[in-house]
Every structure is written in C-alpha cells, then in structure tokens.
Computed example of a mutant assay.
Amino acid sequence: MKGMNWRFLLITSGVLGLLSGLLPVFLGDEYLFTTLPIAMMFSSFFIVPRVKERKLPSAIFVTLLTAVIAIVVFFIYQFATRDTALATANLKTALTNLPLTVLIISLAGSFVFVKTNEWTEKKRAQFEAKAQAKAAEKGKGKSQNDSKGKLRSFRGQKTYVPHATKKRYRNTKKKK
C-alpha cells in the first residue's frame, strides 16, 4: 500500500484506541459501547483530511485498528482485575454486540467522511478559483497592500469607517 503514511496512521489509531479502551475502566464497563464508536469516528475524522492518497482504505484501516486496540486494552484490564468468569462473560457479550457496530462505523463512517472531504475540497477549489478571477478582474490597475482590505474586497464589503455620518466630506482647501 504505497502512499500511506503508516506512522501517522498507527499513532492516531494507537492513541485513540488506548483512550477509548481506558476510559471505560474509569467510567464503568458499559461505557465501552459508547467510547469505542466515538473514538472510531474521531480517528476517521483526523485521518481523512491529512491523507492525500488512498483516503478510504486509510480511514477504514485506522477505524478498525482503533477498535481492535480499544477492545484489547479494555479486556486486558478486565482479565487482570476482575474475576475470570465475569471477564469472560463481558468478552462474550462484547464479541456478539460489537462486530456489527465496528463494521458499520468503519465502512459507513469512513465513506461519509471521505465523500464529505472530497466535496469540501472541490467547493474550496471552486471558491478560490472564483476569488482569484474576481481579484484579477478587479485588481488589474490597483494594488491592495493591506490584508484587511483584501479580505473586505474578497467578501464584497465596504471599507470600515470608524464614525460614519450622513454629512459628506467636502474639501475646503482652495485649488491653485
């Protein structure tokens, strides 16, 4: 899989997997079913805009790896601190309830984030092209040096007047 930034993918999924696996330890066992989907969505949210190529496979990989890390961390804690029978029952419950959730979030969530990101990038490119065309048309003879003036002209706003009045300024100096 050429073009994937493996280090970034592994660090993101590792950190979010650890967080979502350790949070239920402090909040309560039932919160695994809440923290896991949230961490998976955040992992996809963090990865998709930063990866340039192969966005969908990267997002799916990271969400699945986040889920695996979270489940492993949580059940290592369960088997280390709880009774083996209780930990085994919790593991069986998680293995029957979580795979479908993980699969849906991994595939559908990643797909939604990738398509949203592509749409956003396309709209941003169109907006920037329109702004450049407008600036090129407007600024052929003028040069705008200050960034605030550029921003105002880009937005189509008038320049700021600190104390606008209805009276118009009239030059009182005599012409020579």
Rank of each mutant, 00 (worst) to 15 (best):
M1R: 07
K2H: 10
K2T: 13
M4Y: 10
N5R: 08
W6C: 04
R7H: 13
R7S: 14
R7Y: 10
F8K: 11
L9C: 02
L10F: 11
I11L: 10
T12F: 02
G14I: 03
V15G: 05
L16I: 04
L16F: 03
G17M: 04
L19K: 07
S20M: 05
L22F: 08
L22S: 09
L23P: 04
L27A: 12
L27W: 06
G28M: 01
D29C: 07
E30D: 14
L36G: 07
L36H: 02
P37R: 02
P37K: 01
P37Y: 01
I38D: 08
I38Y: 04
A39F: 03
M40Y: 00
M40D: 01
M41N: 04
S43M: 00
F46R: 04
F46Y: 13
P49N: 07
P49M: 06
V51W: 01
R54I: 02
K55R: 14
L56G: 03
A59D: 04
F61L: 10
V62H: 01
T63R: 01
T63L: 03
L65K: 07
A67E: 02
A70L: 04
A70H: 03
A70R: 02
I71P: 03
I71F: 11
F74T: 01
F75Q: 05
I76E: 06
Y77F: 12
T81E: 11
D83N: 08
T84I: 12
A85F: 11
L86T: 12
A89P: 05
A89F: 07
N90K: 11
L91T: 09
K92E: 15
T93D: 15
L100K: 05
T101G: 13
T101A: 12
V102A: 06
L103E: 00
L103K: 00
I104V: 15
I105N: 10
L107R: 02
A108V: 15
G109A: 06
G109P: 04
F111I: 02
V112L: 11
V114I: 06
K115F: 07
K115R: 14
K115H: 12
K115T: 13
N117P: 07
E118F: 05
K123H: 11
R124Y: 08
R124H: 10
R124G: 02
R124T: 13
A125H: 08
Q126Y: 05
Q126E: 15
A129R: 11
A131F: 05
A131V: 09
K134M: 11
E137K: 09
G139E: 07
K140F: 04
K142A: 13
K142F: 13
S143M: 12
S143Q: 12
S143L: 09
N145S: 14
D146H: 09
S147R: 10
G149Q: 09
S153Q: 14
F154M: 14
R155I: 02
R155V: 03
T159V: 11
P162A: 01
P162D: 00
H163V: 09
H163G: 05
A164H: 09
K167L: 10
K167H: 13
R168G: 12
Y169A: 14
Y169E: 13
N171H: 09
K173V: 14
K173C: 14
K173I: 12
K174C: 07
K174F: 08
K175S: 15
